[in-house]
């Protein structure tokens, strides 16, 4: 699955695009930052309801490809432009974490 397969999902709003051709490794759900720090896979999609500057720091240090903010969680402009600068995709959705993770998983299968 490539990042572009996720960017087109109708459930998600793209806040930062990243590199659409980037190959995605896995999908990972977690809201506690130090657990995510230890377990988020490189080149992964990270689904979380924790939207702040530290979310981006963890994503950046673990080489996460894409942050998906579930439950309508937002990220401030400053952090979004930093994400864009670092080439990390950020998506936002009204859906709960499991539902959107499942849709992304299914998008990768088709």
């Amino acid at each position: 699955m490539k990042l572009k397969d996720i960017l087109v999902l109708p459930e998600c709003r793209v806040l930062s695009q990243g590199n659409p051709e980037r190959e995605i490794s896995r999908i990972f759900c977690c809201d506690l930052l130090s657990i995510a720090m230890g377990k988020a896979p490189s080149d992964g999609v990270w689904v979380t309801v924790m939207g702040n500057r530290n979310t981006l720091a963890v994503a950046s240090l673990t080489d996460t490809a894409c942050i998906v903010l579930a439950e309508g969680v937002a990220l401030d402009e400053d952090t979004l432009s930093k994400a864009a600068e670092e080439g990390i995709a950020v998506l936002s959705t009204e859906q709960p974490a499991f539902d959107i993770a499942l849709k992304i998983y299914q998008a990768g299968l088709s």
Partner: peptide
Amino acid sequence: SLGFGAGMGLPNMKRF
């Protein structure tokens, strides 16, 4: 409330 406090920081430092 910012997502810290799992009590995994020091264990991560040890593990990595």
